[in-house]
Amino acid sequence: MATLIFPIQAQNSSTSNTEKEIIQLSMDKWQWMADKDIAKLTPLFHPQAKFVHMSGTWTTARELEIIETGSIWYKKATVHDTAVELVGNTAVVWNRITLESVVRGNDAKVEFTVTEVYHKEGSDWQMLAMTFSSVRETHKIGK
Protein backbone atom coordinates (compact mmCIF):
# COMPACT_ATOMS: atom_id res chain seq x y z
CA MET A 1 0.00 0.00 0.00
CA ALA A 2 1.26 3.48 -0.83
CA THR A 3 1.66 6.18 1.77
CA LEU A 4 0.39 9.74 1.88
CA ILE A 5 2.08 12.11 4.30
CA PHE A 6 1.02 15.65 5.01
CA PRO A 7 1.81 17.88 7.97
CA ILE A 8 -0.79 18.31 10.68
CA GLN A 9 -1.73 21.96 10.67
CA ALA A 10 -3.62 23.85 13.35
CA GLN A 11 -7.16 24.63 12.31
CA ASN A 12 -7.34 28.23 11.20
CA SER A 13 -10.61 29.76 12.37
CA SER A 14 -10.76 31.88 9.21
CA THR A 15 -10.74 28.79 6.98
CA SER A 16 -14.26 28.26 5.69
CA ASN A 17 -16.02 24.90 5.71
CA THR A 18 -15.84 24.89 1.90
CA GLU A 19 -12.08 25.43 2.00
CA LYS A 20 -11.71 22.61 4.54
CA GLU A 21 -13.89 20.37 2.34
CA ILE A 22 -11.82 21.01 -0.80
CA ILE A 23 -8.50 20.57 1.05
CA GLN A 24 -9.71 17.22 2.39
CA LEU A 25 -10.85 16.20 -1.09
CA SER A 26 -7.42 17.11 -2.48
CA MET A 27 -5.69 15.08 0.25
CA ASP A 28 -8.04 12.13 -0.39
CA LYS A 29 -7.25 12.37 -4.10
CA TRP A 30 -3.50 11.94 -3.41
CA GLN A 31 -4.26 8.78 -1.42
CA TRP A 32 -6.61 7.44 -4.10
CA MET A 33 -3.93 8.05 -6.73
CA ALA A 34 -1.33 6.25 -4.58
CA ASP A 35 -3.76 3.35 -4.07
CA LYS A 36 -4.64 3.29 -7.82
CA ASP A 37 -8.28 3.54 -6.73
CA ILE A 38 -9.93 4.16 -10.10
CA ALA A 39 -13.42 3.68 -8.62
CA LYS A 40 -12.98 6.78 -6.44
CA LEU A 41 -11.01 8.82 -9.00
CA THR A 42 -13.41 8.33 -11.93
CA PRO A 43 -16.28 10.43 -10.48
CA LEU A 44 -13.79 13.02 -9.18
CA PHE A 45 -12.10 13.67 -12.54
CA HIS A 46 -14.42 15.56 -14.90
CA PRO A 47 -14.62 13.70 -18.25
CA GLN A 48 -13.17 16.76 -20.03
CA ALA A 49 -10.39 17.47 -17.49
CA LYS A 50 -6.79 17.97 -18.58
CA PHE A 51 -3.69 16.71 -16.76
CA VAL A 52 -0.38 18.51 -17.38
CA HIS A 53 2.77 16.56 -16.54
CA MET A 54 6.44 17.04 -17.31
CA SER A 55 6.13 14.79 -20.37
CA GLY A 56 2.81 15.97 -21.78
CA THR A 57 -0.83 16.90 -21.39
CA TRP A 58 -3.61 14.37 -21.59
CA THR A 59 -7.27 13.63 -20.94
CA THR A 60 -9.11 12.08 -18.01
CA ALA A 61 -9.37 8.74 -19.80
CA ARG A 62 -5.60 8.66 -20.35
CA GLU A 63 -4.82 9.76 -16.76
CA LEU A 64 -7.03 7.02 -15.36
CA GLU A 65 -5.40 4.46 -17.67
CA ILE A 66 -1.92 5.61 -16.57
CA ILE A 67 -2.87 5.28 -12.90
CA GLU A 68 -4.62 1.93 -13.32
CA THR A 69 -1.77 0.34 -15.31
CA GLY A 70 0.93 1.81 -13.06
CA SER A 71 2.65 3.55 -15.97
CA ILE A 72 2.93 6.31 -13.37
CA TRP A 73 2.50 5.15 -9.78
CA TYR A 74 2.01 8.10 -7.46
CA LYS A 75 3.58 6.10 -4.65
CA LYS A 76 4.02 8.72 -1.92
CA ALA A 77 2.99 12.38 -1.90
CA THR A 78 4.33 14.44 0.98
CA VAL A 79 2.30 17.66 1.07
CA HIS A 80 4.32 20.54 2.56
CA ASP A 81 1.99 23.46 1.96
CA THR A 82 -1.55 24.03 0.66
CA ALA A 83 -3.49 27.11 -0.39
CA VAL A 84 -7.06 27.42 -1.67
CA GLU A 85 -8.89 30.21 -3.51
CA LEU A 86 -12.65 30.04 -3.98
CA VAL A 87 -14.44 31.88 -6.77
CA GLY A 88 -18.14 31.05 -6.84
CA ASN A 89 -18.45 27.31 -7.53
CA THR A 90 -14.79 27.01 -8.54
CA ALA A 91 -11.88 26.16 -6.25
CA VAL A 92 -8.20 26.43 -7.11
CA VAL A 93 -5.87 24.41 -4.89
CA TRP A 94 -2.09 24.69 -4.80
CA ASN A 95 -0.15 21.89 -3.09
CA ARG A 96 3.63 22.04 -2.70
CA ILE A 97 4.64 18.40 -2.60
CA THR A 98 7.50 15.96 -2.75
CA LEU A 99 6.29 13.20 -5.02
CA GLU A 100 7.87 9.79 -4.87
CA SER A 101 6.72 7.85 -7.89
CA VAL A 102 7.55 5.11 -10.30
CA VAL A 103 7.46 6.36 -13.89
CA ARG A 104 7.63 3.65 -16.56
CA GLY A 105 9.55 1.43 -14.12
CA ASN A 106 11.97 4.10 -12.86
CA ASP A 107 11.92 5.54 -9.34
CA ALA A 108 11.58 9.32 -9.19
CA LYS A 109 11.47 11.85 -6.35
CA VAL A 110 10.56 15.37 -7.48
CA GLU A 111 9.44 18.62 -5.85
CA PHE A 112 6.30 20.04 -7.44
CA THR A 113 3.70 22.68 -6.95
CA VAL A 114 0.51 21.07 -8.18
CA THR A 115 -2.35 23.32 -9.28
CA GLU A 116 -5.77 21.69 -9.13
CA VAL A 117 -8.99 23.29 -10.40
CA TYR A 118 -12.33 21.99 -9.13
CA HIS A 119 -15.89 22.96 -10.03
CA LYS A 120 -18.93 22.18 -7.90
CA GLU A 121 -22.11 20.97 -9.59
CA GLY A 122 -24.90 20.42 -7.07
CA SER A 123 -23.23 18.83 -4.06
CA ASP A 124 -20.28 17.25 -5.93
CA TRP A 125 -16.84 18.64 -6.72
CA GLN A 126 -15.13 17.57 -9.94
CA MET A 127 -11.55 18.21 -10.96
CA LEU A 128 -11.24 20.17 -14.22
CA ALA A 129 -7.45 20.47 -14.37
CA MET A 130 -4.29 19.29 -12.65
CA THR A 131 -0.88 20.76 -13.49
CA PHE A 132 2.48 19.65 -12.09
CA SER A 133 5.10 22.44 -11.99
CA SER A 134 8.62 21.43 -11.06
CA VAL A 135 9.99 23.69 -8.30
CA ARG A 136 12.86 23.92 -5.84
CA GLU A 137 12.29 22.54 -2.36
CA THR A 138 12.55 26.11 -1.01
CA HIS A 139 9.54 27.20 -3.09
CA LYS A 140 6.74 28.72 -0.99
CA ILE A 141 3.10 29.22 -1.93
CA GLY A 142 2.02 32.84 -1.36
CA LYS A 143 -1.24 33.08 0.55
Rank of each mutant, 00 (worst) to 15 (best):
A91G: 08
N95F: 04
N95T: 09
V87I: 15
L41W: 00
T98Y: 02
K50A: 13
V102L: 08
M130V: 11
G70H: 04
V84Y: 08
Q126G: 07
V84C: 05
N89H: 13
K120S: 00
P47S: 04
A83F: 13
W58Y: 08
D37S: 04
T131I: 14
A77E: 11
H80W: 12
Q48Y: 13
T131M: 14
R62T: 15
K50D: 12
G105M: 04
R104M: 10
R104E: 12
E121D: 14
L86E: 03
L128Q: 10
F132N: 11
A129P: 12
N106H: 07
K76F: 02
S101R: 06
D124T: 13
V92N: 11
M54T: 14
N89F: 10
S101I: 01
L128D: 10
V52I: 11
H139Q: 11
A77G: 12
V79W: 05
V92Y: 13
T42S: 10
I66G: 03
A61W: 07
E111H: 10
K75I: 09
E68K: 13
K109L: 03
Q48A: 13
G70D: 02
T90N: 09
V103I: 08
F112G: 01
K109Y: 00
E137F: 11
V84K: 05
V117S: 06
E85V: 15
L64I: 00
G105P: 06
L41F: 02
D124E: 15
S123N: 14
V84S: 08
A83Q: 15
S71R: 15
T78G: 06
K120P: 00
